[in-house]
């Protein structure tokens, strides 16, 4: 068993860190740049997914199932969040006919 473990090619954990960080950064840039509230939601989804993948990778490399259970719970919460968020977006669009966040700035003052 030990020999088969060492013989199998392993992807270094650093690769996962670099990939997930890149994906997270793309999400952050999307949140910063986009003015469409729906596109901001999509960027938040990208960030959530990159965090999920890194959690699952660490869990798999550390042989600890708790990490993957946490990923499952994050997916549950993300699904609920998206359902509520998109419903809110539709309500905002109905009341002000736009989802441009530069116009929806009435909380600023």
């Amino acid at each position: 068993m030990e020999t088969t473990v060492t013989q199998l090619q392993m992807i270094p954990l650093v690769y996962y860190i670099i990939f997930c960080t890149a994906l997270f950064t793309i999400g952050v840039v999307g949140v910063l740049v986009k003015r469409n509230a729906l596109a901001i939601f999509m960027s938040v989804e990208l960030m959530l997914n990159s965090a999920n993948l890194l959690l699952a990778a660490f869990s798999a490399y550390r042989n600890d199932p708790s990490g993957q259970v946490f990923v499952f719970f994050i997916m549950v919460v993300a699904a609920a969040e998206i359902a509520i968020g998109l419903a809110l977006l539709v309500v905002v669009y109905r009341s002000s006919r736009t989802i441009d966040i530069n116009i929806l700035n009435r909380l600023k003052w």
Binding site: T4, V5, L8, M10, I11, L13, A56, A57, S59, A60, Y61, R62, N63, D64, P65, Q68
Partner: peptide
């Protein structure tokens, strides 16, 4: 430090 190889670990 990695403890296990994901290709053979069964936790998932």
């Amino acid at each position: 430090a990695t403890v296990s190889n994901p290709a053979v670990s069964q936790i998932g």
